[in-house]
Amino acid sequence: MRIIRYLNENSDAVLAAVTDDNQIYPLPFNDFIDIIYEAKNAGLTPLNYIYGFITGKKSLQKDLSQLNLLVPIVAPEVWASGVTYEKSREARNYETTDKANGGETCYDKVYNAARPEIFLKSTAARTIGPNEPVYLRSDSNWQIPEPEVGLVITKEGEIVGYTIGNDMSCRDIEGENPLYLPQAKIWKNSCSIGPAIRLSETVKNPYDLQITCRIYRNNQLVVEESANTRQLKRRYDELVSFLIRDNKVFDGTVLLTGTSIVPPNHFTLQDQDRIEIEIPEIGVLSNPVKALAHKTVVK
């Protein structure tokens, strides 16, 4: 069972349940987290609670491609995890200008450390949904998408859903100096999530999710790579435990869990590219790429 958010015929943002046979049923809720707490108050799982609303009802006579999909949850904050896959560590080491004279880099150290790398990625105002443009930062010449599984959590740290996230990244900025990480990760429209939230109870094995990233240029496929969450070094609950430790976390926060898909080192996104990230259990998150109006050169 997936939950989507879309604009109805009155231009109101509404939720709907999407069954495994792609039938769409509008729901009388404005926010995904409301479903979670109402289900708890009723003594039901979210899945059974939703079935109580849709059983015997008529489905929406449309398919997902006909809906104006929105970001599935207005997450007050999106956090992200770094260097949780071997491929990510290799990529970070490749791009860094300080390789510690052949010794351990900071990325090697965090990959093997007890404490994971967790950083603030985005806020509600910076996060976009399906089919909205992600922007290219004007002072970077090496930018890529980072396809990731996103955990939707409550303020207590309970994982209540899974979504797809695109953690846009400037490899040259972070590579120059790890202290530039916020600038390499956070700017306007630098984070997208969607197209749906998969209820956590309906995911058989969250450590066996296939992730595929495709990048199109002039309608031609130029990058296609896949990975599986079984390659993840850390557990989801481990990442969440560090996020909520001595921290105020809000209902509906999304935690991205790191990437194992990195385009070839010579590749950088360009204006009018299109990024597709697919996890079959969740859907396809598609975003066009747009360059900002000016180009800034940092010397």
Rank of each mutant, 00 (worst) to 15 (best):
D251F: 04
G102H: 06
G150Y: 04
A75N: 11
R198Y: 06
L60E: 04
A42S: 14
Q23T: 10
F29A: 12
E117H: 09
E38R: 13
R245Q: 15
Y180M: 11
N265G: 04
A80H: 07
V289S: 13
S169W: 08
R92I: 09
L243M: 06
I4M: 03
V223E: 08
Y236W: 12
A227V: 06
N205K: 00
D208F: 09
F250I: 03
N265H: 14
T212H: 07
P182D: 09
V262I: 15
S286W: 04
Q231K: 12
G150A: 13
N177W: 12
A80V: 10
Q231I: 00
E201K: 13
I4G: 06
K99I: 08
H294Q: 15
E281V: 11
N93Q: 03
G161Q: 04
T19W: 00
G102E: 07
T202Y: 08
Y37C: 02
L256P: 06
E174Q: 15
N177D: 15
E225W: 00
I118M: 06
A17G: 09
L70G: 08
L269Q: 01
G175Q: 06
L209D: 07
P280F: 08
N141V: 09
E156W: 02
D251P: 02
I36R: 01
F29C: 06
Q231P: 05
E77A: 01
D12Q: 15
R2D: 01
S169A: 15
Y94S: 03
V152N: 07
N101W: 07
T268N: 11
R245T: 08
I24R: 03
G150D: 07
L27P: 12
A13R: 13
E104D: 15
S200L: 06
T97M: 13
R217L: 05
R2S: 03
K109F: 11
S138N: 12
F267A: 08
D31T: 04
S192R: 02
E281I: 05
I54T: 04
G194D: 07
E278Q: 11
K109N: 14
G43W: 04
V83T: 11
I24A: 00
E278V: 00
L199W: 09
L209H: 05
G129A: 09
Y216M: 11
A16M: 12
I128M: 02
Q210F: 02
R137K: 12
D12P: 06
S81Y: 07
